[in-house]
């Protein structure tokens, strides 16, 4: 491994912002969503407003997630090459090659870590899947909300889904997809910590400050 490392700005502010806001929003949405699906707090006071607050937080967090998705989609076109939409899909031969390399390393077939300045191709595909899951959660969430509060905004944001799926199926998948997001989050943290330890390029720090320490030979 070369020792010559250059401090390089990889993750621009909008990327880091959406990452950390999503981090908190997913936690809030999961806890309140689990409560809404199966209330686990049992107030007895006639002054309580538990479900009311849970739904309020869930809806505010839902709108926040929608805003983060909009910002990130915009940045996929306006941001630097590490944030560009092309990094999420194996479009080039180089990308497909990297997909094979990264997969082999994760499965212990190869011993060469997938040095990447931005995302590895595996990560890119995982985040694209995550993006689709977010979209589904947003549309299905607003579809459920449209029953509560019929109107044009909710119709556009997800009410249209009720003509394609029955409302209970929407509720079921909205619930189940949360767990799929957890799976991606768990694997994401695990692989990030691992790659940070073997590549030593400040990967874990980069999501806070935006900089990685790279040699210039990384796949980009």
């Amino acid at each position: 491994m070369t020792t010559e490392r250059k401090r390089t700005y990889i993750w621009e502010f909008p990327v880091r912002l959406t990452h950390w806001v999503n981090f908190f929003v997913i936690i809030f949405l999961s806890v309140t969503g689990l409560y809404i699906g199966g209330p686990f707090i049992h107030p007895t006071s006639d002054q309580s407003f538990t479900m009311g607050w849970m739904r309020f937080i869930h809806l505010v967090a839902g709108y926040t997630l929608l805003m983060m998705v909009i910002i990130r989609v915009y940045w996929a076109f306006a941001g630097n090459k590490y944030a560009n939409w092309r990094v999420f899909l194996p479009l080039t031969g180089r990308q497909r090659h990297d997909l094979g390399d990264a997969t082999k390393y994760y499965l212990f077939v190869s011993k060469k870590p997938p040095y990447a300045a931005g995302h590895t191709m595996c990560a890119g595909i995982a985040y694209f899947a995550l993006f689709l899951l977010f979209l589904f959660q947003i549309f299905s969430g607003f579809a459920l909300f449209s029953y509560n509060s019929p109107g044009l905004v909710h119709e556009i944001l997800g009410g249209w889904l009720t003509s394609l799926m029955n409302i209970q199926a929407i509720r079921f998948w909205h619930h189940l997809v949360m767990y799929f997001i957890w799976v991606i989050a768990l694997v994401h943290v695990y692989l990030a910590v691992w790659l940070d330890s073997v590549e030593g390029n400040g990967l874990m720090g980069s999501i806070f400050g935006g900089y990685k320490f790279i040699t210039g030979k990384e796949w980009e």
Binding site: G37, G38, F180, V183
Partner: peptide
């Protein structure tokens, strides 16, 4: 869904 999801996680 909860048993399935918790099992998956």
């Amino acid at each position: 869904a909860d048993k399935f999801g918790a099992g998956l996680a």
